[in-house]
Each structure stands twice: as structure tokens, then as C-alpha cells.
Design a protein around this nucleic acid. Sequence first.
DNA 1: TTGAAAGCGATACCAT
DNA 2: ATGGTATCGCTTTCAA
Lengths: 329, 329
Amino acid sequence: MKEVAAVAGVSLATVSRVVNGGPSVNPELAAKVQDAVQLLGYRHNVAASSLRRGMSASIGLIFDDVANPFFAAIHGGVEEIARARGVLTFAGSSDEAPTRERELAEAFGARGVDGLLIVPAVGGDHGYLQRDVATGVALVFVDRPPRFLDADVVLSDNAGGAALAVDHLVAHGHSRIAYLGDRSEEIYTAAERLRGYREALTRHGLANGLSRLVTPGETGAAIDALVRGAEPPTALISGQNLVTVAALHALHAAGLQERLAHVGFDDVLLADVVKPGLTVIAQDPDGLGRRAAELLFERLDGYAGPARRVVLETTLIARGSGELSATAR
Amino acid sequence: MKEVAAVAGVSLATVSRVVNGGPSVNPELAAKVQDAVQLLGYRHNVAASSLRRGMSASIGLIFDDVANPFFAAIHGGVEEIARARGVLTFAGSSDEAPTRERELAEAFGARGVDGLLIVPAVGGDHGYLQRDVATGVALVFVDRPPRFLDADVVLSDNAGGAALAVDHLVAHGHSRIAYLGDRSEEIYTAAERLRGYREALTRHGLANGLSRLVTPGETGAAIDALVRGAEPPTALISGQNLVTVAALHALHAAGLQERLAHVGFDDVLLADVVKPGLTVIAQDPDGLGRRAAELLFERLDGYAGPARRVVLETTLIARGSGELSATAR
DNA sequence: TTGAAAGCGATACCAT
DNA sequence: ATGGTATCGCTTTCAA
């Protein structure tokens, strides 16, 4: 930058003003500076700028795992919004471990990120972030709410989605609807889905004894047990991706794919190629990311009001498996 | 840091040495410094450190799209290696546009990344990166080689994978093997797969007239045309994810899923749930990312030899569709 | 082994 | 509107 100033025959201050689109610069001088910039191939040093300004035009993203397609989709949504402001994104995986999440937050903080967008690791205490918030770091949680901290959060309507599935199956004549949920009850999304399922059953005046919490590996056995039980279900809701896939396997293996209605939570590729097509409750991860980024930038733009909670709708995509009638058995 | 120095009763220099695990520090003083760090909740300012050192402990990743599961998997592999060194990753999407790729590279450069890991946008001239390389930025390309620049690159064995598919089908008695590839011939991976297919056919002494380049949307029509042709194929290789899914649709719609053997390039979720299970050529995106990160850090550690080219094996995963015999028709 | 001080590159206040 | 300059927080010779 010194060089640019020298070549353009102006002061450092002026160059800085031009580079940052400063308020009042003689167009003539500005042009000279631009030329010098071109000539020297000058590149702005954001590190130095950050040091002085205390803003880095970057934000940090913490996911369970950056390699997970669901989080990758969120990442994409965030990037879309961030890009429009020239903000770059750091991304890291917490591996669902609170300690690792905290390490990452520290590392991002040390790099002076302007904001943090976090899918909170289960079981963590997020009070440690209070400090960053105090220093002006914008903070938004995504997909799951934080614990011990009041902050903006963007969620999917998990309970509503599960209810949607129940309503849909009831509309197709089912009254014995089983639910295979994720074992880990502490997971917010899993708990919400189960809650939505239960409340919907109650609302329809249906019995509530057909839910099981499983690991993906236990899915097959759970289905076997259910269909051999005294009151076998005529429909199944699988509460999570991996469980859905495992359920599909089990149903195919048992030749039940045309006999047991099935709605899975979360859309999966090839869902429309299996027979029958898999009816799912789809989330909008891209929207989750976009919305979260928007809240984050509003904070950066000065919003200082109370924490906001945004809930995004889930939708049911009918493809066949969820439209099997209860009488088909 | 100034505060820490004051509290610990030592100089800035000493604090810096302690914080960075400097070479020679009196354990006693070091302890005092650590205490002060704890007490004040001091956080290292990497931006300032970068400014002085010219190293930021961060690298930039440029993908077609961060939301794409394939790239997300690469991202995961990179992160695994980077994390071990305390290096953080920026990630951005080029949207397959050379200009946007370049903008991102500039933005990363302005933030002083130590290295750049790029999935090159098709049709771009990567000479512009020469400058970064000259200033010591480590550069590695992934999944596709760059143009007009000699740099480290990590690739999948696309041609080998396609050949694997042909060999497998030939072994199951097929001699009329069709190939549906991605329309865009400029895409390196697409071109390589087609080449692998052709060379394998030639090696087996088979005719070469059954390849078609399509968009996913054209897949169904292409399959129809092929099976209605004079010399209908008994087997099909789909060269890309979306084409594979479209092919699956078309085969199901035409009731051909048990009659036309099918091998898809790239593994997909639920591939083992469709009937028959989908045989695929699987890549190792995680390995691609890990290997690329390793090369990058070797450069950072001082390797200054010639550009390296690492090619990762692809593997065939048999699930049924690729094992249909030619006589089943 | 420790400290003093210069400097990394850019910004913003204060003058002019 | 423009320029001089202190300053951001840290690292690193150079001396002691």
C-alpha cells in the first residue's frame, strides 16, 4: 500500500480511502490510485485491516461434521447470504463433542471472526460463548437450541413434521402407526419428533404404544418385533435418515414394502426410485442456513433486541409408501 | 497480551515466547505467565500474529459447491488432516465459474491463507495463481487438474473406474455395453470416464458405438433409443450421479431393471435398497481430501520439488444390477 | 534467559 | 479534501 501511495503520488490515507470506498475523494486522485493498484497488482491485506478495524469479514461455522450432506446444505445457504456481503466462511466439525466445539469457537475467535454460526453439540453448556457475545461477536444457533445461553436460533419444525406424517397416515386410514426414533433422547431434534408424533396420536385419539427408540443397527429387529406383536402396526414412521435406510432394508427383506405404509423423516436421494417411492418429511437445510445467516448479519448491522427463534416449516413429499392404505394387508 | 505481561511481571517478549512455546523460557516465569493468561482469560490474536509472521494457520478451499455431498466429503478429509496441525479451513463455492473461483482465491489470499486447495472450475486459466505460489502459498488441485499451471494434483482414477465397470460386465457375459456420460465433454472427469470405457472396450475387442452423451434430463430418451436400436445393449454404464438416478427411473419405468445390467459411477445412498441393488464404481472423496491436504502441508513444510500427481483407486461395489447376465433377456 | 524496541500493513483521528 | 501519524497486537532481532 505504501508503494501504491508512492506511485500514485498521494498519501497512505488517501489510498486507504480509495480502497475502502471512502467518503470524499477527488475522482482524479482516485483514478490515479486505481491505476497504481492495477500496475502494482496490489492486494488488500485483510489481516492488517482486521487488526486495526476489529472486523475480519469472516464468520465461523461449527457443524457436527462438515462432511454430512445435511450440514453441507446449511453451509451452502449460509455462504449464499455471506457472499453477498463479501464475507468468507470458516467451517469446522465438532464431532458432536462439546469440548471440540469449544476449541473450534476459540480458534475462530482467535482469528477474529465477526460471527459464529453453531449447530450446538449435544450436552454442552454454551455459557462460554457469553464472552464472545460481550465482545460483539454475532451468534446464531442452527438446527438445535443452545443450553444455558439466550441467543438467536433457527430450527426446523420437527414436531410439526412428525405430526404431518401422522396426519397423513391417519388420512389414509391408519390407526396403528409405529414410530422408530433415534435412540439418543438428548438430541433435540429426535425428542421433538417423538413429541410431535405422540401429540398427534393423542389428538387423533389413538393409542400410543408403538414407538421404539433404536440405533440404525437395531432397526430391523425392532420392525420384526413390531409386526409380530399382538397389535401389529399398519404404518411406520422412521425418525431419522439412517433409521429410514435401515427400515427400508428390513421392509424389503421381509417383503413388507407394499404392505406397511412408511414415511421417513428427511429426504434422501433415490427416494423416488425405490418401490414404492418413499414418502418423506423434508426439511429445508438450505433455508435453515440462509435464515441463520440473515439473523447473524442483522446482529452485525446493529440489531440488539431480544434473542429470536425462527422455526422453518417441514413438508411432506408423497411418493407412494406413505399412501399405502391400512386395508392393503 | 500487554496486560498479561503486566500481571505476570515480565516483558511482552516473554509472554509471546510462552504463548508460542518459545525455545528458552524459565519454567518459573512460564508458570507465572500461564497463570496470568488464565486469570485474564487472554485469547491469542491470530490476526495480529499473522500480520507479523506472514502465516495464518488457515487454508482456503474452493469447490464447485460446498453444499454438494461429494465436495463436503472432500472437505471432511481435508479438515481431518488440517485439524491435527491446528489449521482452520475457509471454504467457498465457485459455482463452476472461473471468475468466481478467482475472486475466491483473491479473497482467501487477502486473508493470508497459507495454502489453497482447489477443485478447478472448468474452462479456467489457472495461471493467475502463479503469483500466490511465488509468494509461498501452497497450492493443490483436487478431482481435476488445472490448466496452464504446473501444480500438485490429487485425482480419482476415473478411466480406471470405467474400465473396471466394463471388465466386470464383460466377465458377466456382456458384449454390448452402452455408456451414458455427462454431456459436458470439457469436464475432465467425464472425459476420463469415457476414455476408460472406450479403451476397455477396445482391449476386449468389442464394438464402440453405444456411447451417448446426455444431460440427466435426456437420459430416459437415450435409454429408450438404445434398447430399441438394431443392436440393443445388454448392459449400461451411467457415468455420473444424476445420470445414474435418471437411468434408474427410466429402467424402472420401462420394466427393464432386471433385464439390463447396470453399473453407475459414484456411490449413492439407498443404492442397496433399490431392486436389484445398484452396482457402482465408488470413489474415495474423503481420501481425496486427506491426500490433497497432506501434499499441501508437505509444501508448507518445505517440499519444493516438482509437482506431484496422485491418483486414487476407484472400487467396484457389486450389489446385483451389475451382475445380471447377458442371457437374462 | 530476558527485555527493549522496531515493524508487519492498514486505518482513523486530527490537522491543515 | 488530503496528509501526517499514532495505533491495533504480536513477533523478532539485537543487546544486555
